[in-house]
């Protein structure tokens, strides 16, 4: 177990190194010039050259990357070009909000997706199954900003059940978490349905029924844990999908997370922030997957981590 964890962490570090290189390289070859953003349109060529020199952007790519990496190893993610603040500070201030939002979204998508999937599987072929599957299809296909605005309109504007935007209490969390999670719940309901149908056909379910167990026990104890197994691995991947979703959702709901930060930074070519947010996201994805893999053996005794 410990050996496995160590190996996975080393692998994770290598993945992050790769991500940092690719992102840095893409930002380097990007035609947008951060110096122009800082200096403004009316700046003289001399000012521009000065700023470029100050930021070290006149150095060759390898030197720039090595310098960035050197800082990173010491925990220094650099300073924002425009906000003149440590990137680490900026991210640290906003990360809890984003993590909360993602947690909410995971809970929402699992609760909605799994339960609907189980219901559809039990009622397989019936009208309920079909309408649930159509709904899930819509949920998967609907763009997040549309879903977000729709939820805002119905539940915040018309019904006033939840606040329109902002951050601070549980009721602030509900709509953004739903918006972020609704696509996943569509996915999960479909996956859970097919997984559950497979499991319900399996020999050990027949054995459980042949023992004379009650239907609820067969479903909850014998079928569901087995049906969930293939889905756990997906939760890790989800975090990656969320990362693209939070940019939209955080803007729609005014949620003060790193998605907003990233969006502003991209518009202004604020390279240190873009790098920082990308690396933190990559970290979250890698750790999320690791976590999902670590949970699996607790549900499936056949899986041993080594």
């Amino acid at each position: 177990m410990l050996a496995y964890l160590t190996r996975r962490l080393i692998q994770s570090a290598l993945i992050l190194l790769g991500v940092s290189f690719i992102t840095f390289f893409l930002l380097y070859v990007l035609p947008a010039d951060p110096v122009r953003q800082i200096a403004g349109r009316s700046a003289t060529a001399e000012t521009v050259a000065n700023i470029r020199h100050q930021l070290g952007l006149d150095q060759p790519f390898v030197v720039q990357y090595a310098r960035y990496l050197g800082g990173l190893v010491q925990g220094d993610m650099g300073r924002s070009y425009l906000q003149k603040t440590e990137v680490a500070t900026l991210i640290a201030a906003r990360l809890p909000a984003t993590l909360l939002l993602m947690l909410g979204a995971i809970v929402a998508e699992l609760v909605i997706g799994l339960s609907l999937g189980v219901i559809a599987a039990i009622r397989r072929g019936g009208a309920l199954d079909q309408s649930l599957m159509i709904t899930s299809f819509v949920a998967v296909s609907a763009p997040q900003f549309v879903v977000g605005l729709l939820l805002l309109y119905v539940f915040a504007v018309k019904l006033s059940w939840f606040p329109i935007g902002g951050y601070g209490s549980f009721s602030h969390l509900v709509l953004p978490a739903l918006t972020l999670g609704i696509m996943g719940s569509g996915w999960y309901s479909r996956m859970m349905r097919s997984s559950m149908i497979d499991v319900l056909r399996s020999d050990y379910i027949r054995t459980a029924r042949a023992k004379g167990l009650k239907r609820m026990r067969v479903l909850a104890l014998h079928a569901m844990p087995n049906a969930i197994l293939p889905i756990i691995a997906m939760i890790g991947i989800d975090i990656g999908i969320f990362m693209s979703g939070i940019v939209v959702v955080e803007s729609v709901f005014g949620w003060p997370g790193i998605g907003q930060l990233a969006w502003q930074a991209i518009q202004r070519v604020d390279i240190p922030i873009i790098m920082g947010v990308t690396l933190v996201s990559a970290c979250a994805i890698v750790l999320g997957n690791l976590l999902a893999d670590m949970i699996t053996p607790f549900i499936d005794p056949r899986i041993k981590l080594r």
Binding site: S202, D203, Y204, R206, T207, A208, R209, A210, K211, G212, L213, L221, H222, P225, N226, L229, I299, D300, P301, R302
Partner: peptide, 20 residues
């Protein structure tokens, strides 16, 4: 079922629940 009439199946490898 299981009380007055019980049954055993062909595939012992798949007839028991793997997670219990």
């Amino acid at each position: 079922r299981g009380n007055r009439i019980a049954m055993i199946f062909q595939e012992p490898m798949t007839s028991l629940n793997p997670v219990l």
